[in-house]
């Protein structure tokens, strides 16, 4: 019984950690596309945001 509870807690903790990592990675990917990606269309569209937020732009 105790083992079962422990296992459940551990599994939940692992899935929480996986969620944290997933959210972090989604945020970082979004940040890269909005702030750093050099594709011309993306750069032009994000131009004023990048300058106003002091991302290294060009």
């Amino acid at each position: 019984m105790t083992t079962a509870i422990k296992t459940t807690t551990a599994t939940r903790a692992d899935s929480n950690l996986a969620s944290i990592v997933a959210v972090f990675v989604i945020g970082a990917t979004l940040l890269f596309s909005a702030g750093l990606a050099q594709a011309t269309a993306l750069h032009d569209a994000a131009h004023d945001t990048r300058h106003a937020m002091a991302f290294p732009c060009h």
Binding site: L30, A45, D48, T49, M53
Partner: peptide, 16 residues
């Protein structure tokens, strides 16, 4: 576009 990318950038920071 500027408003849109501000929201996207802050959403990215919000997630992190």
């Amino acid at each position: 576009m500027t408003v849109g990318f501000d929201v996207v950038a802050y959403a990215a920071f919000g997630l992190i």
